[in-house]
């Protein structure tokens, strides 16, 4: 760490231009941070307001006193632990399945040359161009045929059979890894799978983490899938549970809705904050990097 920073500093003396650059950087960062943070802060403060503080024409910034019991109500109503467990279960299975199957497929699409590869890849890209709503009815019929409706299976089993977006993402990363790096291994008689598992996977760890993260979030926030396939209240996920706070003719408790939203977001924020280093900076620290 220290070595790298000194390298940065000695690259140039502190000229005025450099200082100005720094100031501009931080100014831009702060400006965007406020923009990006604001809505979230508002979500958090709203989650602590009383109904009276929401029902005013002038926005209330700081609820006083903060209504912590909103969170108690929400976790009780959401059946929080149960729904969280269901959601985590779907996340674990989906992320595992996606990362495994997509990295395999991406390897096949990027580091092995075989006839028909590029045609299949074009078809892969093409599948993303069909709007999902028209696939829903045949897909439902298919899952019905499998006897999967009413179970969790339609929500995670397909993940083990890869998805176009993630294959494409990983393929792009795999393609940036210099060919001569693996050529040497081939000469040494390494099997293709060993190259994949022992060289490519560690090198592309940041990309794999990104795929895992996106996949996790998609499942975490997915409302439609669970809505369609689950019909037992005990199987519900957090995103599906959110709807319990919206009532057409009974008044939506925005404070509770926002509290529920915060409850859903906070674990992910914490997870992201503590793991991001490992997947954004991971590679350069492992020393495998060139």
């Amino acid at each position: 760490m220290a070595a790298r920073e000194s390298l940065e500093v000695d690259a140039g003396t502190l000229t005025t231009q450099r200082i100005l650059g720094r100031v501009a950087t931080y100014a831009a960062l702060l400006f965007f941070s406020v923009l990006f943070l604001f809505p979230l802060v508002w979500m958090l403060t709203t989650s602590l307001k009383s109904i009276g503080e929401i029902n005013t024409s002038q926005p209330v910034w700081f609820p006083s006193p903060p209504q912590w019991e909103n969170y108690k109500i929400v976790t009780a109503k959401l059946n929080f632990w149960r729904y969280a467990l269901n959601t985590v279960m779907l996340c674990v299975l989906t992320v595992t399945g996606t990362v495994l199957s997509c990295s395999l497929a991406a390897y096949g699409f990027s580091r092995i040359k075989w006839p028909g590869r590029d045609k299949l890849f074009i078809i892969t890209l093409g599948t993303m161009m069909i709007p999902f709503p028209v696939l829903m009815v045949p897909l439902y019929a298919l899952f019905k045929e499998f006897g999967w409706v009413g179970t969790f299976k339609p929500l995670w089993v397909p993940a083990f059979f890869a998805s176009a977006y993630n294959i494409f993402l990983l393929r792009q990363f795999f393609m940036t890894i210099p060919q001569d790096l693996t050529d040497a291994a081939v000469v040494d008689g390494c099997s293709e799978f060993r190259i994949f598992w022992q060289m490519i996977i560690p090198l592309a760890r940041s990309a794999l983490m990104v795929v895992g993260l996106f996949c996790f979030m998609a499942v975490w926030n997915d409302f439609l899938g669970p809505l369609i396939y689950l019909s037992n209240e005990n199987d519900f996920t957090l995103a599906l549970g959110l709807q319990a706070f919206q009532s057409q003719h009974g008044g939506t408790d925005t404070n509770l809705l926002m509290a529920a939203g915060s409850v859903m977001v906070l674990p992910v924020i914490v997870l992201f904050f503590f793991t991001q280093k490992s997947f954004i900076e991971g590679i350069s620290l492992t020393g495998l990097k060139l």
Binding site: S101, I112, K113, W114, P158, A162
Partner: peptide, 22 residues
């Protein structure tokens, strides 16, 4: 070709069942 097909096998299955059929 064999290697390529093996690596992409899960996707070829998924592609045909969960995407191509619908």
């Amino acid at each position: 070709l064999v290697k390529g097909l093996l690596f992409t096998a899960p996707w070829i299955l998924g592609l045909s069942i969960f995407t191509m059929i619908p």
